[in-house]
Design a protein around this nucleic acid. Structure first.
Lengths: 150, 150
DNA sequence: CCCGGTGAGTCCAGTTTTCCAACCCGGTGC
DNA sequence: GCACCGGGTTGGAAAACTGGACTCACCGGG
């Protein structure tokens, strides 16, 4: 049997192609179907399917903003909004390891500087490094090796 | 044309189904094909394709550890190791928003506490909130709205 | 020598997804 | 009347995924 963990569960919801890009757009402020289609590059039918799934999963809210003809906007829920950190961390990784050259999109933090996301331990506030953490299994079998050696 | 950003570029590499789960396993210490198959639940076929792609992309290194018969292990490169923060952030999100109840997998930080990943601004060390950052387009059109309102 | 097992895949047939383009429908602007 | 817009749906072809069987090389036991 496969390992149970929230990574797998999260990917059930947001792991399909286009889903994260659609969420990126909504978090950037896009609300309308056609806008999201355009900015992501997904085909309309796929995007319609993805958005419906996200609404069902409670990540988006579909709001009617016009009666005749009926028109809808997609708004992020709290769950979607907190995905923002995942997106930033992923973007940071992409900037460093996939995209050579200057990052195509940059965020500015409220502190005035260009935002670089850093992941720290909530308790001791030290940056998280692979070697400094150990996975512990709760359900299922325990994890034997954690540190990735050479 | 679609928005250019490192999220999309990163997803080209690690966005396919099973890829992140395979990387999770390698980062947890799994090195062998059959182990990864078992822990992820992917079919052997797909997993072979994904691992090859990851090797090509420079995230994994395929090392022969036995001559007769030839046997290989997959080792994470630096690029893969630094994905660890993405995985942790994603797991944290899944624990909070997808999985009710206790998290199925828990990490322990070197500080002795259970690890909860937090994303902070590298400069001012404040936790990143959606409302506190603004996206700035470099290439392509600028971003008009950034804050997700109600 | 034969049997079974292991590790790392490959092959195959059948199902499911994805993709693209075209179409639809209600309403608006000209 | 006619084109256009937003928000989809439909259809058919192409690609991806699935599970299981198969391969190949070697090892160990009886």
């Amino acid at each position: 049997m496969a390992r149970t963990c929230s990574i797998a569960d999260a990917l059930e919801v947001i792991g399909e192609r286009w889903t994260l890009l659609a969420l990126r757009e909504v978090l950037l402020g896009c609300r309308r179907f056609d806008q999201i289609v355009q900015q992501t590059g997904a085909s309309r039918d796929i995007l319609a399917t993805r958005l419906r799934k996200l609404v069902d999963a409670g990540l988006l809210e579909r709001r009617q903003y016009e009666q005749h003809p009926p028109r809808y906007e997609y708004h992020p829920t709290e769950a979607a909004k907190s995905l923002h950190t995942v997106l930033l961390t992923l973007m940071e990784w992409g900037d460093r390891h996939i995209n050579p050259g200057p990052p195509p999109t940059v965020w500015e933090h409220s502190c005035g500087e260009v935002l670089h996301a850093q992941v720290v331990c909530e308790h001791c506030h030290q940056p998280v490094e692979l070697g400094e953490s150990r996975a512990v299994r709760l359900g299922g079998q325990p994890v034997e090796r954690t540190v990735s050696d050479e």
